[in-house]
């Protein structure tokens, strides 16, 4: 592995780890707050999948960095300016419709990214993707079914779901942005060229929204910055909570 590829791979798996941890954290905020018990269980389960993914990506990142850091250093000892997750994933929990729309956008995205990632020439990345693919199949089914029910349920659930789609749409565009790091890895068969997935994502999500009687939002605005550490105000608060105990006891084992 050349130094340039190695550095890019480290950056890449850190991004994927950040995506997983941040989304997992948001989902976990539902535990004991869900509309009924089965959903508390489902949310805990999905959160667990994402925290599990974060651990695998960070563990690999730590090995690549080879500077003595561990998975926990990546999660707990970096500030919001160092985090590289997609903005969509750090948005607050919101109401149930908001969470399920976010989940649909993310799940469909991963259902397209992971089958590409599983072909990665980097065996470690391919192995994580192979495990995640199975989980994502279940996640997509779940978020799709929920958006169907909420969109085509009552007037109130429809209104909330439409509002969520409108509010979150502008955060989906950066999911398909490429930068030098990702381009280098895509050219070398290690990373995914996400810009090529955009049309399929739009098609899949639009189909589900339309079936749910939700109007597909127009591409009239876009907010970007997650991959460069230019976040929404939400991430700082999330990390404050996530990191408080770990950072209050420097160097301790748990």
């Amino acid at each position: 592995m050349s130094d340039a590829i190695k550095a890019a791979t480290l950056e890449y798996v850190t991004r994927l780890g950040d995506d997983s941890l941040v989304l997992g954290h948001r989902i976990s905020e539902w535990v004991s707050y869900a509309p009924f018990l089965e959903e508390d269980i489902a949310y805990a389960n999905v959160a667990l999948d994402y925290v599990g993914r974060a651990r695998m990506f960070y563990t690999y990142a730590a090995e690549l960095a080879a500077d003595g850091r561990t998975e926990d250093d990546f999660a707990y000892m970096r500030s919001d300016r160092d985090y590289r997750n997609l903005l969509l994933l750090e948005m607050p929990r919101g109401d149930f419709a908001y969470s399920q729309i976010r989940q649909l956008f993310a799940d469909v995205y991963y259902s397209l990214v992971l089958p590409e990632l599983v072909k990665s020439k980097d065996e470690r990345i391919a192995a994580v993707a192979a495990k995640a693919i199975k989980e994502t199949k279940y996640h997509v089914r779940r978020s799709r079914d929920w958006v169907h029910r909420l969109g085509d349920g009552t007037e109130e659930s429809h209104k909330r779901t439409q509002k969520a789609a409108d509010q979150l749409w502008g955060y989906t565009h950066e999911m398909f942005d490429m930068d030098e790091t990702e381009q280098l890895l895509a050219d070398n068969g290690i990373g995914v060229d996400v810009s090529k997935l955009r049309d399929q994502w739009h098609k899949d999500v639009s189909a589900i929204l339309t079936e749910s009687t939700i109007t597909v939002p127009e591409d009239s605005w876009a907010v970007r910055g997650g991959r460069t550490g230019y976040h929404t105000e939400n991430l700082g608060h999330m990390l404050t909570e996530l990191q408080i105990v770990h950072r209050s006891h420097p160097g301790c084992q748990w």
Partner: peptide
């Protein structure tokens, strides 16, 4: 659940999530 978002390591966070899921 009060401690899921503040668990001090990723391993502990995963174990706690799993435990609370079991309880539910």
């Amino acid at each position: 659940g009060n401690w899921i978002t503040r668990a001090p390591s990723l391993r502990r966070k995963a174990v706690l999530l799993s435990k609370v899921q079991d309880e539910a």
